[in-house]
Nucleic acid binder design. Structure first.
Length: 548
DNA sequence: AAAAAAC
């Protein structure tokens, strides 16, 4: 197990973002001014956070300095974690505040500071999130959940159920923007594992009027699995609020009731996939008249041309027609330039935005490697002799492939060799998919082969190893890497700042080129494992990654 | 000719 590193994150600083304005359209995301007032930066960071689907983790926590402690806090978990309990903080030093202060003066953008501070505290190169706010609404980043005026029931859910202690960086920055009237739209990018889910889940829960027994918050996700996972987080966090919620995903294909039609939805919060939501709306089984918040998780994909753009826009327009002021929240770890431009045009003019430069998007806690494999047979041998043998004690592993066929073939090859692995892809029945995911989440299976079905958002903290059996490439131009998918895949390891390793299998000259392009794009230098045939080389790599 | 979603 690796260590549990606990991330921490935190943003502590409070920065206020002044407004900078901007029209989004024109300035892409260049933030404009923002100053930061850093008020206090005080504490070291500790984040706690959330569960999310993705984001960057921070690392370590240090806690010694903790100023306040709430009595209600139960255990401390750090960055996002929900589940895990291992934890051990590492100490980061509370670094001298002066240093921090010094840095602070320098900055320009808001959230940047938060990161700088954090940098000193824990994670060495942390990411900077650039914020661009519109209008003159001032926002102060939240150093504690109390700063957010959440209901006591919701706070209890955060501390008792989620075991969060304080907001992670993205939470500290985005929550005030989400919860402060006037409720502006938000486009938010944050690292894998940093706690984005908590941001929009809290946003949905806190904006629901408990007295109105009709749907008031809707969250659209790219897969059935992610919808279910997000609903579970919401139900846990909102346990004491009494707010009702429901999943709107395709019904069990169970033989028995296909005929029985789905009943109308009255839950106050609805989370689901685009097709089902669209259908429910057209059948008038999902009323959007009281909708206050519309969330798109993995928003870049949901609004991409080759993603769910049509369904997403349709849903968005149907809601806005009845409710022009419905707040739209877009979250993802990735937003390529094209999508970024597109989404900033479809949200309201006075929206706020948070972005992270692509060069700062890779998680430092997750070490990336490439392994030259002469042919397909070698790839299987590497999986068998290196990964399955060595990896057993390292936590769980996800092996990504590009096609369902590839998934099936690899699965068969490994099973024939006597290994226990499970495989998931969209051609399986919903029941089988649910079962495979549950077994993996329960830790009953160690190695999971998957298509990009699980590339995004899947949150299983025990995953320390990710294998790109096939490198992700663009469908239209297979010689080009699919940068976003790559980032999402590797983000399945290193949740919340934990350590992890990624092995990219490079079989052809084309693959080598793809890895080069990936390095260039993200500003990384993925190291090569000298020989696929050397157990020692893999051990060194894993040791370097902190897994051995 | 893919991944997923779903009619």
């Amino acid at each position: 197990m690796a260590d549990a590193t606990e991330p921490t994150a935190s943003a502590d600083t409070e920065s206020k973002t002044p407004a900078s304005v901007v029209e989004s359209t024109e300035l892409e995301n260049k933030p404009q001014t923002a100053e930061i007032t850093s008020t206090s930066m005080v504490d070291a960071a500790e984040p706690t956070a959330s569960v999310e689907t993705e984001s960057k983790p921070p690392a370590s926590a240090a806690e010694s300095t903790e100023p306040e402690n709430k009595s209600q806090t139960v255990e401390i978990k750090r960055w996002a974690d929900v589940v895990d309990d291992e934890e051990q903080p590492s100490g980061t030093a509370s670094s001298s505040e002066d240093k921090i202060a010094e840095e602070l003066k320098v900055d320009k953008l808001t959230i940047d500071d938060a990161q700088k501070i954090n940098k000193f505290l824990d994670d060495p190169e942390d990411s900077r999130i650039q914020a661009v706010t519109s209008g003159d609404t001032p926002y102060t980043s939240a150093s504690t959940f109390e700063d957010l005026n959440l209901s006591p029931e919701l706070l209890k859910g955060l501390y008792v159920e989620m075991k969060f202690q304080k907001p992670s960086k993205i939470q500290a920055i985005s929550l005030p923007m989400i919860l402060t009237p006037p409720y502006k739209d938000l486009i938010a990018q944050a690292h894998n594992g940093s706690g984005k889910t908590t941001c929009f889940v809290l946003g949905m829960l806190s904006r629901v009027d408990p007295n109105v027994k009709r749907p008031q918050a809707l969250c659209i996700c790219p897969t059935r699995e992610l919808s279910i996972q997000n609903l579970e987080v919401l139900q846990k966090m909102g346990k004491y609020t009494g707010i009702s919620s429901e999943c709107a995903v395709p019904m069990e294909s169970g033989n028995s009731d296909r005929s029985r039609s789905r009943p109308p939805i009255f839950a106050q919060v609805v989370i689901g996939t685009p097709g089902t939501i669209k259908r429910l709306m057209s059948q008038k089984k999902l009323s959007v008249i009281d909708m206050k918040v519309l969330v798109f998780d993995e928003a870049d994909h949901m609004l991409a041309k080759d993603g769910f753009q049509d369904d997403s826009l349709r849903i968005m327009k149907d809601i806005e027609r009845l409710n022009a002021r419905c707040q739209i929240l877009l979250f993802s770890a990735t937003f390529d330039e094209t999508v970024k431009n597109f989404v900033s045009r479809i949200v309201k003019k006075d929206h706020n935005q948070l972005f992270v430069k692509k060069e700062e998007l890779s998680l430092d806690s997750v070490k990336q490697y490439k392994v030259y494999c002469p042919d397909e047979m070698v790839k299987i041998l590497v999986i068998k002799d290196r990964i399955l043998e060595l990896g057993e004690n390292l936590g769980q592993t996800i092996i990504f492939v590009n096609t369902k066929r590839s998934a099936g073939m690899l699965h068969k090859a490994l099973v024939d060799l006597g290994y226990e692995v499970t495989t998931i892809h969209g051609a399986l029945t919903h029941e089988d998919r649910d079962k495979i995911v549950k077994e993996f989440k329960d830790g009953l299976t160690q190695v999971l082969i998957s298509t990009d079905l699980l590339a995004r958002g899947f949150d299983q903290q025990q995953v320390n190893l990710v294998i790109n059996y096939d490198l992700p490439v663009k469908y239209e131009t297979p010689s080009e890497p699919h940068y976003e998918v790559y980032l999402h895949r590797i983000g399945r390891a290193g949740r919340f700042g934990r350590k992890g390793a990624v092995f990219n299998f490079v079989m052809s000259e084309r693959d080598a080129m793809i890895m080069e392009k990936i390095d260039k794009y993200f500003g990384t230098q993925v190291k090569a494992v000298p020989s696929w045939n050397s157990e020692e080389d893999f051990k060194i790599a894993l040791k370097e990654a902190g897994l051995l």
